[in-house]
Design a protein around this nucleic acid. Sequence first.
DNA 1: TATATTTATGCAAAGGTTTGCGGAACTGTT
DNA 2: AACAGTTCCGCAAACCTTTGCATAAATATA
Lengths: 329, 329
Amino acid sequence: MENITLKRMAEVLGLSISTVSRALKNHPDISASTKKRVHEIAAFLDYEPNINAINLRSKKNRVLGLIVPTISIFFYDSFISAIEEECRKNDYTLLILQSGNDPGIEINNLSICRQNRVSGLFVCLATNSVNMKAFDKFKEADIPLVFFDKVPLGKGYNKVCIPDEKAAKLAVESLLKKNKKKLLAVLGNKSHSITRKRLQSIKKTISSKKGIEIFIEHCNSHTEAKNITRQYFSKKTIPDAIFCMSDEILIGVMKSLNELKIEIPAQTSVIALSDGFLPKFYTPEITYIETSGYKLGKLAFIRMLNCLDGKVEPVEIFTDSPMFKGESL
Amino acid sequence: MENITLKRMAEVLGLSISTVSRALKNHPDISASTKKRVHEIAAFLDYEPNINAINLRSKKNRVLGLIVPTISIFFYDSFISAIEEECRKNDYTLLILQSGNDPGIEINNLSICRQNRVSGLFVCLATNSVNMKAFDKFKEADIPLVFFDKVPLGKGYNKVCIPDEKAAKLAVESLLKKNKKKLLAVLGNKSHSITRKRLQSIKKTISSKKGIEIFIEHCNSHTEAKNITRQYFSKKTIPDAIFCMSDEILIGVMKSLNELKIEIPAQTSVIALSDGFLPKFYTPEITYIETSGYKLGKLAFIRMLNCLDGKVEPVEIFTDSPMFKGESL
DNA sequence: TATATTTATGCAAAGGTTTGCGGAACTGTT
DNA sequence: AACAGTTCCGCAAACCTTTGCATAAATATA
C-alpha cells in the first residue's frame, strides 16, 4: 500500500506541499477553508507524518536511549515502565537495550544509540564497567546522560539514585531499636556503587552503638544469598536479624529461612531494601525500606527533560525512601 | 559538536560524497587505497551513519513495535527481554509501548507505531480490545503483526502462544493422578483468550473422570485471588488441590494459604502455570507447567522474521510447556 | 596511433518534511 | 486611480544517504 505523504495530499487537493504542511500545523498564513480541506483529507487517508523525514530535517531525534543490565528483574522493569510512560506522554521514542552486565555489549549498545541519534541516554552501568571513555563521548556531543542505580564514581555525571546511605541507615536503626544484637547483612556485588554506599552506612550506623555484632556478606545472586543464609542459620547461635540489600537477596534469604523453618520474627527479624512488590507476599509480610524503580524512573525522566532544556550542570538527586512496616521485626 | 556526515568526510578527503559512501561499503568500484583512507578517517572521526537518512532513502525502517499491557509484570518482562536480544542481534530497533490495558491507549500506540514506520509489530492485546479494525490497517499496509499471549479470535492473524489447552490439561491430569477430588481452579479475566482456552481444557479433562468436584473462580489481580482463596479455605472442608492459571494468581493464592497456615501438600496441593521464577521461591517449591515468556519471545521473533521474509500466511504456533516438579503435589 | 576496454570517481536525483522568502490577488485608503 | 497593507499560497533549499548513470583517466588491443 502506497504511503501517504504531504506530496500525495497536495496532489489530491491541488495545493503545494508547503501549504499542506502549514495547514496541518494550523499555521496562521493558511485560510480556514483550506485548513479544513487538508485536515479532512489527512484524516480520511490516515496520514501519519514520516518521522524519519522530520528528524532528518530538524536534526533532532526525539529518541531516548535506555541501557540496563537486564529488563526482566525487579526494579529495572518498573523503572522502565515509568520511563516508557513519560516518553509516551512527552512524544519521545524509547530505545531499550540490555547489556547483560557485559561491558563489551555495553559499548556496542552505546554505538547503537549513537547510530540512532538519541537525544539523551539513561544508563545503569554493568557490574564491571569502569572505563567511562565511551560515555564521555556523549557528554562531548552534548547528549545528556542520566545514570541511575549503578552510577559512576566521578563528580561530572548526572546521577539519580536511591538515597542509599539514608535507606540503609533507616533499616539498621529499625533493627537496633528492636534491640537486635547479632546482625547478618547480606549485600550485593562489592564493586557496585550502591553496595559500597549501603555498606558504609551500615558500618557507620553500627559504630555508634556498643555491643552489636555484625556479619557482612556479599553475593551475586539469590542462590548465593540462599547459601550464605543457610550457613549462618545452621549453627547453634543464629543472627537475630537480617538486613537484605535488595529484592534478589531477600528472595534467597527467605528461601533458606523457610526451608530451615526459622520463625520470623520470633527467631530472627528480617528487613530489606525493596521495590515493594515481594515483601507483601511473604507471611509475615516483610518490613522494607522502599527503593522504588518506578519513582526513580519518574525522577530520572524529569532530570532528563531538564538536561534537554539546557540545564546541564551535573547533579546527583535522590528519591525518597519511606519505610513500610510489615510483621518481620 | 558538529555531526560527522559523509559530506564532511568527503570535504576532508577531497572526494565526492558518493565515493565516500561506496568506500565505506567496500564497493568494488573503489580503489583499495581510497577505501583505506576513507575507513581511517571514519574511524578517527567516529562516523556513525544517520539512520534517519538511511530509512528515508530506503523507505524501510528496521524498527519493530511491541505493545504490551505493562512491562513490569512476570512473563512480559521476560518476553520483552527475549525480543530485545533478538532485535539487537538482527539490527532492529525495538519500540516498546505499554497499553495499560486501555484500548484507547492501545489505539494511540498503534498510531505511534505507524508514525515510526515500524516494519513489524508484536502485540499482546489489552483486556477489552475487541475492535480489530486498527490492527487490520497494518495488515492492509503489509506490516506483519504477531500476536502473543492475549491474541484475537479470528483466523487471519499470526499467533504465537503457550499451548494453553495442553498445559492446563497436563496440570489437571497431574492433580487427578494424585487422586485429588475437590479442585479449586483460579483463573484470570474471563474475556481473555487464554483464560477461555485454559478453562475449556480443564473442564474437558475433568469431564472424563467421575466423582471430581471442581470450583471455577475468576479474578483480575493477586488481591482478588487471595480473597477468593481465603473464602474457600476458611470453610470446614477445603479443596484438596488448587490450580493457578498464572504467576499473578499463584502469588495471591499462596499468600492466603500461608496466612491460614494450610500445609502444602499435606492439606492441599498446588499447581500453577508459571514463567518459572516464583515457584522456586516458595517452600515447598511449587510444581508448575512452564509458560515461558522468554521462549515465547524467541518464537515470536522467528515468526516475525519469516513474515518479513514474505511468509505472510497467518499461522498459530506454540511453545513447548514442560512440567517442573516441585514438592507441592 | 587510433580505438576499445577497464578502472576510479563524480553528478544528480530521490526519499518526506520544514521554513524563509517572494509574490499574486484582494481590501482598504487617499 | 494610485498606492499601501493584508491575506493566502508556492518555490526552493536543506537535512543525509544511496545509487543509476555519466565521465575522465589509464590501460590494453589492433
